[in-house]
Write a protein that binds this DNA or RNA. Structure first.
Lengths: 189, 189
DNA sequence: CTCATTTCTTAAACTAGATTAAGTTTTTTG
DNA sequence: CAAAAAACTTAATCTAGTTTAAGAAATGAG
């Protein structure tokens, strides 16, 4: 049922079968069709989402009405509007399935419960957030050091398979430019 | 000696005196003059730095030779090039004192030791990295949703005291534009 | 207190990337 | 499979922010 998540956790800490069962009591799993919304702006973010299969994106609508994708999550990764999730405040973000996607979720009250019942999970999430922070530091460095064209070129050579998985307009907003500009870059090749 | 850090930790978890002593054995503290380097590009980042007093900035030199400030840390906050620190690989970043600064540091080997000797600290750092991730999500959202001028205006009204503490050229690169453009914005008021 | 260095400003010329708008291709759905 | 919707392309025009360069103001060190 939750084996994808157990496997991921066991890369970082050891969970016994008993502990897996406690964990299981705090999880739920869902499937979403492509383009389905797990969460919409205006709502409070109810869960932290672990992608078992597929792809989710976190985005918001800017003042000009354009979708700005700020984060993607694929297999074996977590995604949420953390501020909304932690403080249970309304969110500006949407979380949408970019492909048909299976997720395992932890709801807000179970998130606190998790750390009380399984203190071991502190280490797991410490390591997850540590990695997320590493990723953010690198992302910000790339945003500040490269032109739009360089960002596309280097992202494309680092993650060629991923570039094929999502529509170009989602990728363009993630990389910080317009879909039209992405077409222009691609036409040059 | 390390009371600023103990106080900070005690906002999140309870540490006994005995535990504080164990922690103390894994820490060091230093003072740096304004403009001193705690870490330079090319070196491997030796520590995770907690600012007791003052201000540190993390920056790199871009292809054009300009300094790009990607992060600041002031009182009661942590800063490091995490990727370099964790994997002990050479860093592209500098960490410099933007003011005379007192820090408490955890060196790499003591960072692992810390979690072995004081598993409680997993929760503390889980919460620290969780907050850092929240801050990154907000930062990226602001970078994608606002013009340069709006970023300055909103940063200035959110953190007016901080804006006074650092030179404008550091702030400009943190907000993602040139010092000349910042002068232009300010002249308009 | 003074000279040197660092920081900030101004302004003209420039450009990377946005905007607008229309047309084309691909994908989805009934 | 046909029609509609979604995604992508092209090209002309435009603009927010950069670049370059020089001078002014502030800060700091001896």
């Amino acid at each position: 049922m939750y084996s994808a998540l157990y496997n991921h956790i066991n890369r970082f800490i050891d969970l016994s079968n008993d502990e897996q069962e406690i964990l299981a009591s705090l999880l739920k799993s869902f499937s979403f069709k492509k383009k389905a919304f797990l969460h919409e702006a205006g709502e409070t973010c109810r869960a932290n989402y672990f992608v078992v299969k597929g792809c989710l994106r976190l985005y918001f609508i800017d003042i000009k009405g354009a979708e700005q994708t700020t984060q993607f999550a694929i297999e074996n990764w977590w995604i949420s509007d953390l501020t909304s999730f932690i403080f249970q405040k309304p969110s500006d973000f949407y979380i949408q399935a970019a492909e048909a996607t299976e997720v395992i979720i932890i709801e807000r009250r179970n998130y606190d419960e998790l750390f009380e019942q399984l203190p071991k999970m502190e280490k797991y999430f410490r390591l997850i957030f540590q990695k997320l922070h590493q990723a953010s530091q690198m992302r910000i460095k790339y945003l500040y050091s490269q032109t739009a064209e360089e960002r596309y070129t280097s992202f494309n050579s680092l993650f060629p398979e991923f570039v094929q998985r999502v529509p170009q307009y989602m990728l363009a907003s993630y990389l910080g430019f317009t879909p039209e500009f992405l077409s222009k870059i691609r036409a040059k090749k």
